[in-house]
Design a protein around this nucleic acid. Structure first.
Length: 585
RNA sequence: GCACCAGUGGCUCAGCUGGAUAGAGCAACGGACUACGAAUCCGUAGGUCGGGGGUUCGAAUCCCUCCUGGUGCACCA
């Protein structure tokens, strides 16, 4: 409808230009659905935008535009108001036309083709496989999934990717943690390292290890801990201590056995993460392994290329990337003095590789604590000749859990955290999905478990689902009362839909496409939850104001076809955010 | 110290590519079931949009500055 009105305005504008009344360029105009019914259905600000350049009063410009508007069966009247807004009042027919459009498109109502099939890579969650997903990851998962689905809905070809950090020191600490628990299961006792992973899942993996290998991986405690530096509780440094312990473990077990422990640990945790996400309705096209990527020669080749291009220099035995030439605060190390590549080096090349794989753009959904990382990554891409705008960072703020009015303390290392799985079991997938995307991503989220569990009417998800179920219930009543109804009957009498509540519902439904496009392009799923609440509210209001199953067969059919369209839009929206559409509750 | 995000009714938030009287929900108060589900609806009350400057026809929105909260500033990942 907006586009339609814009066309009318453009036509009037062109006419004025041709007549020499106006000589300015067509400005950026805004056409918005009015908040206040007194301001009509849509308002346009073109006169205010033009006034300055045309050197006329806004209201005069508005008058000229209105005078030259082509007439249309969809426009009831046009008024000039306030400082120079042009308000459009639509005819009921204009609203009613939305119903056949919705019902014809069905599940695809709302789909548009803005993306034109462009390939876009969305990387999200990418949590280190060092433990189960917790509630923070859940927000990333839900948000990333909905953003991806929305982009797909507007015509992009979306590739959802999980970057598996299966290399590096954290993974070694994890493997050692498991092995030490294994030793305990073999009957050894010793103080557990301060910096090791302590969650129950570590013990569970150790049990598997014990079952699979019995005592084949066993080493005596005294051999493991002999001549190690002091751990933190003893006054030492926990980082130095754990590194020494990793080296000792590798030495005692040998490379093959160490890898067995490592792989079993990784596989167990990764499988758990995969299943957890799948149950949450979040799936990926690709699980991209850091380890296998860094084992290729791509990384070395790219670093060599950067050296050749003069983007890199050597200092204190390390290899530095001149990121400060590209807007970063300082230069960054790619290769440490000990010959090891930094995480940044691998990650940068991974991102370059994304574009080499043919994606026109990429989105990274990261925790907001990574914000400082963005400039160096963009610098790296730019240095490589990849326009930094092709990579978009979406930063997701933390989730704080409240239970019994108190903040739940969370720490991955100490193992005291609430997992996504626990959350899903407590509040259900639907509520979790809905709540996670209800807030814009950069907004810090307080998640009150008691409230979410309460399943009271404070939960906006129930409100929307209830509207859907209520409509289903009406159609069940229809069957019980053996009233016949066909969509054709309804479509034939749309002109009977003239009640204010009916026009409001039609107007809200007509906005759906705009909401989808806006939510998708701005990566703001909360716009959709907000919209669904409004549509549900319009329906509930209608429900209380008018009866559907009335005597008059024509009116009845028209009303039924209307709520059928409402059900379609509610269903499409709920599906997009990954929430079920129960026919009764 | 530098950087990023946030600061809107009692609470949780929307509005932020400048637009008409700042919107919802919850909580509070008052109403509506002999009708398709009252898990609903309708109404009332409640706000110096963190403070102060500026830009302009117009600022919650843009600029500057200050204050508060969170986060980040490794040859860790």
């Amino acid at each position: 409808m907006k586009q339609y009105i814009e066309k009318l305005i453009k036509s009037s504008f062109d006419k004025l230009c041709a007549a020499g009344e106006l000589s300015t360029a067509y400005p950026k105009v805004q056409i918005d659905a009015s908040k206040d019914l007194q301001h009509g259905d849509f308002a346009c600000n073109i006169a205010l935008a033009l006034a300055k350049e045309a050197k006329r009063k806004p209201r005069d410009v508005a008058e000229m535009i209105v005078k030259n508007l082509p007439s249309s069966p969809r426009i009831l009247k046009v008024e000039i108001a306030g400082p120079g807004f042009i308000n459009f009042f639509l005819t009921p027919q204009a609203f009613q036309a939305i119903i056949p459009e919705i019902l014809t498109a069905g599940k695809n109502y709302g789909r548009v083709d803005i993306g034109k099939g462009q390939r876009i890579l969305v990387e999200f969650v990418s949590s280190n496989p060092t433990g189960p997903l917790h509630v923070g990851h859940g927000r990333h998962a839900a948000y990333g999934a909905v953003v991806s689905d929305l982009l797909e809905y507007i015509g992009y070809s979306v590739h959802r990717e999980y970057y598996v950090n299966d290399a590096g020191r954290q993974m070694d600490i994890l493997a050692v943690s498991v092995w030490l628990r294994y030793l305990e299961l073999c009957g050894e006792t010793f103080p557990f390292p301060a910096n090791a992973y302590k969650g129950d899942y570590i013990v569970a993996i150790a049990k598997n290890l014990k079952e699979k290998y019995d005592r084949n991986l066993f080493k005596l405690t005294k051999d493991v801990f002999v001549d190690l530096p002091l751990d933190e509780p003893a006054g030492g440094d926990k980082e130095i201590y754990i590194d020494a312990l990793i080296a000792r473990t590798k030495k005692l077990l040998g490379e093959d056995f160490y890898l067995q422990v490592f792989d079993l640990t990784l596989e167990t945790i990764l499988t758990n993460i995969r299943e957890d996400l799948a149950e949450f309705g979040v799936t990926f096209q690709e699980w991209f392994s850091e380890r296998s990527f860094t084992q290729t020669d791509i990384v070395d080749r790219h670093i060599a290329q950067m050296q050749k291009d003069g983007l890199v220099y050597e200092q204190d035995g390390a290899l530095w990337f001149r990121s400060s030439n590209y807007g970063d605060d300082k230069d960054r190390v790619l290769q440490r003095a000990n010959g090891m590549r930094t995480y940044f080096a691998n990650d940068l090349l991974y991102h370059i590789h994304k574009f080499e794989r043919g994606f026109t753009s990429a989105i990274d959904i990261f925790g907001s604590d990574h914000h400082g990382y963005i400039p160096r990554m963009k610098a790296g891409l730019q240095a490589y000749g990849i326009a930094p705008e092709r990579l978009t960072y979406l930063l997701v703020q933390f989730v704080t859990l409240y239970r019994g009015g108190e903040q739940v303390q969370m720490s991955t290392r100490s193992g005291s955290f609430v997992t996504l799985r626990e959350l899903r079991e407590e509040v259900g997938n639907d509520a979790a999905r809905y709540f996670y995307v209800m807030r814009k991503c950069e907004q810090h989220m307080d998640f009150d478990l008691d409230l979410a569990k309460a399943k009271s009417n404070e939960n906006p998800m129930y409100y929307v689902q209830y509207a859907y179920a209520r409509i289903c219930s009406v159609f069940r009543q229809l069957a019980e009362k053996q009233i016949t109804f066909t969509p054709e009957e309804g479509l034939a009498h749309l002109e009977l839909l003239t009640q204010p509540q009916e026009l409001k519902l039609l107007a809200t439904m007509a906005e759906y496409k705009d909401v989808i496009v806006s939510a998708a392009t701005l990566h703001e799923p909360h716009q959709l939850t907000q919209y669904l609440r409004e549509l549900a509210n319009d329906f509930h209001t209608y429900y209380n104001a008018c009866q559907f199953l009335v005597e008059d067969a024509h009116l009845r059919a028209a009303r039924l076809i209307l709520i059928m369209a409402v059900r379609q839009v509610l269903g499409n929206g709920l599906q997009l955010i990954g929430v079920s559409t129960p026919e009764n509750m």
